[in-house]
């Protein structure tokens, strides 16, 4: 095409990488890595066939979900109520701890060493999955809801403080300066110049985190940290798949109700 007329200009799309060789190298590396990952899964036709049969068996075992025995119903309700209670307490405790951490981690009001401490707390809290924290908490305080509350509160700090700190960093510094200019001290400045600006956000985030904590409170029981999760794992271990499905449906229902409430309240605030 272009080769017949040597004076003809060509055009290549500029790449986001340094040059086209780097671009292709990156593509090749990604492809090879994905293939390696897939190879590590040890997928074989036999395994897929077995899987299909097992899936059919599982569905047959699950349907219809069980809801007849009095004993199991009580177990279910008890677990769900405990999960809900854990989510409420963990949210309250977590938020109370988070607020000072958020102020520490806001670059525009905290001095540098405090800022880095705050950021550090957030990073460490965010790094580990709630189940890891829960399993450690179980070893520290024993099996039960207390471990779950500790794990969920711990996770709440990372989430809540991070988002609230970002909100504080975005505030209108004019309002803060105006308060300072009246001769207010540091705490008064926070109360009048900062808190009013971030209050709606604090309420919104609290509700949002409560919603997330409901989800998490239903599974931390898998490692013994209270709530419906323990019942879930038991039914699974005893091949009681129809009760397993009942629990999952109950969890989904409660999670959805929580989400609806949370969405509604947050909609009202804004």
């Amino acid at each position: 095409m272009a080769t017949e007329q040597p004076e003809q200009r060509t055009w290549r799309r500029p790449t986001a990488f340094y040059n086209h060789y780097v671009k292709w190298a990156v593509y090749v590396v990604i492809t090879v890595f994905l293939l390696w990952s897939a190879w590590n899964m040890r997928i074989s036709p036999a395994r897929i066939m077995d899987g299909w049969n097992a899936a059919v068996g599982l569905v047959e075992g699950m349907v219809p979900p069980e809801y007849t025995t009095q004993f199991k119903n009580e177990l279910l309700i008890e677990g769900l109520v405990e999960s809900l209670a854990m989510s409420v307490i963990a949210t309250i405790v977590g938020v109370i701890i988070s607020i000072p951490v958020a102020f520490m981690a806001a670059e525009n009001i905290a001095p540098k060493p405090v800022y880095w401490t705050g950021r550090g707390i957030i990073t460490v809290s965010r790094s580990f999955h709630e189940l890891i924290i829960a399993i450690i908490a179980v070893k520290a305080v024993g099996i039960g809801a207390l471990a779950g509350v500790i794990a969920l509160s711990y996770k709440t700090v990372g989430f809540f403080a991070k988002l609230l700190a970002e909100e504080i960093e975005d505030i209108d510094s004019g309002q803060m300066e105006a308060t300072e200019a009246t001769g207010a001290n540091r705490v008064q400045t926070m109360l009048f110049g900062v808190i009013p600006q971030v209050m709606p956000r604090i309420i919104g985030l609290t509700i949002y985190r409560w919603d997330i904590n409901i989800r998490h409170s239903t599974i931390v029981g898998i490692v013994g940290a209270g709530g419906i999760g323990a019942t879930l794992l038991n039914s699974f271990d005893q091949y009681d798949y129809d009760f397993f499905l009942t629990i999952i449906i109950a969890i989904i229902a409660i999670v959805m109700v929580g989400e609806l409430i949370s969405t509604y309240i947050r909609g009202r605030i804004q």
């Binding site: 209670a85 307490i89 450690i136 305080v141 039960g144």
Partner: peptide, 27 residues
């Protein structure tokens, strides 16, 4: 009320809460 009811429902053994810091440091 929600907080109080929840707290009540959890029936947390406060002795665990008391020993928790020690347990945690030990860990």
């Amino acid at each position: 009320v929600a907080a109080a009811v929840s707290w009540q429902l959890l029936q947390i053994n406060y002795s665990y809460l008391g020993t928790a810091p020690t347990e945690f440091m030990d860990l």
